[in-house]
C-alpha cells in the first residue's frame, strides 16, 4: 500500500508523516506522531475532545483527513504551554478545579484559548456557546466557564499593564 507523505508544521515545528487517504488528522497526531493530548471521545465531531488549531482556526481533528494537513500549521494541546510556563487558561483550569477526570480538558483548553484570542472579553453566554462543541460529563461546565472568564480577565489585565508599561 502506498502512503501519502505529508509535510506540515505541528506546534511551530516542521513535521512529516505518512498516512492513508482516509486517515484522520487525529489518528495521525495520536498514533503516528505520538501526540496523545488530543483525545477521541466520539470520532464524529460531537464532543470536541480532539480539538486542535489548523491555520489559526479550531477544528475537530477527527473530522480532518490527515492529508489535508499538507502545508498547514497545526497547533495541539502539547504546544499550548510555553516550555514549562503554563498558558493562563491552563493555570485557571487548575486554580478553579475546572477538570475532574480531565479527559475533555485538552479540547476545552485549545477551544478556550481560541475564544480569548478572538474575543478578549467574552460574556458568560458567549463562553457557553463557543464551548458548546466540547462535551464535559464531569463538571457540569460551571467551573470551566468561570476558569475561562477568569483567564480572559487576567489576560486583559496583562495586556493593559503591558500597554501602560510601553
Amino acid at each position: 500500500m502506498s502512503k501519502i507523505a505529508v509535510t506540515t508544521s505541528i506546534n511551530g515545528d516542521p513535521a512529516e508523516f505518512l498516512c492513508d487517504a482516509g486517515e484522520t488528522l487525529l489518528d495521525a497526531l495520536r498514533v503516528t506522531m505520538g501526540l496523545t493530548g488530543a483525545k477521541e471521545g466520539c470520532g464524529s465531531g460531537d464532543c470536541g475532545a480532539c480539538t486542535v488549531m489548523m491555520d489559526g482556526e479550531m477544528v475537530c481533528s477527527c473530522l480532518v483527513l490527515a492529508p489535508e494537513a499538507e502545508g498547514k500549521s497545526i497547533a495541539t494541546i502539547e504546544g499550548v504551554a510555553e516550555g514549562s510556563v503554563l498558558h493562563p487558561v491552563q493555570r485557571k483550569f487548575l486554580e478553579h478545579g475546572a477538570l475532574q477526570c480531565g479527559f475533555c480538558t485538552p479540547g476545552f483548553i485549545v477551544a478556550a484559548k481560541a475564544l480569548i484570542e478572538k474575543n478578549p472579553d467574552p460574556s458568560e453566554s458567549e463562553i457557553r456557546y463557543w464551548l458548546a462543541g466540547n462535551l464535559c460529563r464531569c463538571t457540569g461546565y460551571d467551573k470551566i466557564v468561570r476558569a475561562v472568564a477568569d483567564a480572559a480577565a487576567e489576560m486583559r489585565q496583562d495586556q493593559n499593564s503591558q500597554r501602560t508599561a510601553a
Binding site: G48, M58, C60, V64, A132, G133
Partner: peptide, 9 residues
C-alpha cells in the same frame, strides 16, 4: 450548524 469547530470547516 454544529459547533464552532464544525463551522470552521
Amino acid at each position: 450548524i454544529g459547533s464552532v469547530q464544525v463551522r470552521n470547516r
